[in-house]
Design a protein around this nucleic acid. Sequence first.
DNA 1: TTGAAAGCGCTAACAG
DNA 2: CTGTTAGCGCTTTCAA
Lengths: 334, 334
Amino acid sequence: MTRNSPPTIYDVATVAHVSIATVSRVINNLEKVKPETRSVVLEAIDSLGFVPKADARARAIRTQRRIGVVTPFFTAPSFVQRLRGVAAALGQTPYELVIYTVTSSKHLNSYLDTLPLTGNLDGLIILSLELDDHYVERLLDHHLETVLVEYPHPLLSSVEIDNEEGGKQAADYLHKRGYRRFAFVGDTSTAEYGIHPISLRLNGFRKEISRLGCNLPDCQILIAPYDINKTREQAVEFLKSQELPLAIFAATDLQAISLIQAARQLNLRIPEDLAVLGFDDLDMAEYFNLTTIRQHLDESGEIAVEMLLSRLTNPNRTVQISKLPLEIIERGTT
Amino acid sequence: MTRNSPPTIYDVATVAHVSIATVSRVINNLEKVKPETRSVVLEAIDSLGFVPKADARARAIRTQRRIGVVTPFFTAPSFVQRLRGVAAALGQTPYELVIYTVTSSKHLNSYLDTLPLTGNLDGLIILSLELDDHYVERLLDHHLETVLVEYPHPLLSSVEIDNEEGGKQAADYLHKRGYRRFAFVGDTSTAEYGIHPISLRLNGFRKEISRLGCNLPDCQILIAPYDINKTREQAVEFLKSQELPLAIFAATDLQAISLIQAARQLNLRIPEDLAVLGFDDLDMAEYFNLTTIRQHLDESGEIAVEMLLSRLTNPNRTVQISKLPLEIIERGTT
DNA sequence: TTGAAAGCGCTAACAG
DNA sequence: CTGTTAGCGCTTTCAA
């Protein structure tokens, strides 16, 4: 006869033929219990392997070190690589990794409402998600130590990159390689907010291009949906309208890959007719032999963990900001 | 008006003009609470500085609402896609997702030692990892409901595919497309155990090929390390030694991709000189326009969750086995 | 979507 | 010394 739930004082009381009050007394060593009764109860306790549930849980929770990660649902490989970094760093520690995947900003906010209350978390890492001030305050009020990755906020620690600088480096690199006609491919998220990473990359790219004495007219900018197939289709049309040779800076590796596909479809030679420079350095970039700007995705997760843990053990209240370097990885598409 | 004891949900309920049940719901992010109600409650919570009492919670809670997933560290995209399925399915439920990534079998076993004891888990999903009988017993003894994905065990529920059938389908498909010279590329894990998925795929492939009156001599089998670059290098040599045209069945999409790269390097036309059929249908397969055998990776995770949850609510002790179908996805490489 | 009400496992006051 | 019983603060049916 097996039981599926842990024994309670009621079970102990039944086995020992006493009331639950008596069991409670021997457990808590309150008042005096007749020695014989006492030992009967203790035997029952031992034979059942009884552990007071509330204590057990309270203790478990206190002991259990848990850090939570809120991440967009793993649609894009970049999220996965960041998460992988988090998992790698946390694997070295006694902390448990709890994942909250988010599919909408409403979803995100509801997590943020409840996590500080009943999340039982020691710390929180928020990946690639933008936080409203309101929720930042909540986090702060409830003393839930938090590190942001990709979208910084002045009141919280974060690990980020300089997107504008990334655009600049792209321009410099392509220029140095001898290209003089440029284009940019970004995704539609660009349109919504001025401060989105992709807009910043475009800004940096454009500025540097004009500084170099070239130019980037609007007709050489393609804003496509975040979907590799649709992007490819639009890229085909886009490329047809362009004068070659051309050097394209794609705001993400995935878009760069769409471009490569489009180029193949049009029988363009890479990099002779069309040079493609990506951004991210996904695992996949290597498979496509894509030249790209590495933004150290895995490391961003690792560093977030390190920052979080160090603040946990040493809660000095200064917000810490870690800026990751960018690095051009030369492969075959430029 | 000051109070001397810390606020309870009753206080919150009073201030928010709702019932304690509603407060509990917003705290736990359960079921749906009308957004307006929700924010009223949250305001009350914040204004009172309410913090739920852990012990009271522990008392009232019957389930932990935590399900654990043990997975190989996300090196291969196939693990990620399985995990993605788990996350997707769990996202619909009030269960928390705890991830345990594993980098060695020792590592796995140490998790398996402690998880049933102190894991505080309602259930466990084990992805793409092989279990010793000993640990299976442990899981059973401690009544930790478990579902296995990819490596089944007779005493536990599992979701799996028929790898040998996959090999057979590969042969049939390539044969039907008119190919008559075949090769196989697998990875070195094949060597260690006879029952590994990749060996099974090879077995099924080989058998069916001879049934079809063709043959697959050992010199047309390449066993390469699980590393896309090394595989590519070896594939180049391998292809040089082969008579063309040739149809290759790669045991995984990643290896298929290595083959595509090798073919490009050798200026072979795909599929005219070399047909490549993959196995998995990773997201990436589409980007490479790879014909492949889909094994429904995401679904495997989703189904594992469904199986687990259904056993949790309805603990009928029959072990359940779910066999996923395979599906040929025709794209451009065959 | 909500509220009423019945637990959850345990402690403590009160009888006996 | 021991049992009965009323809570503790929270969760979770079940109806409405």
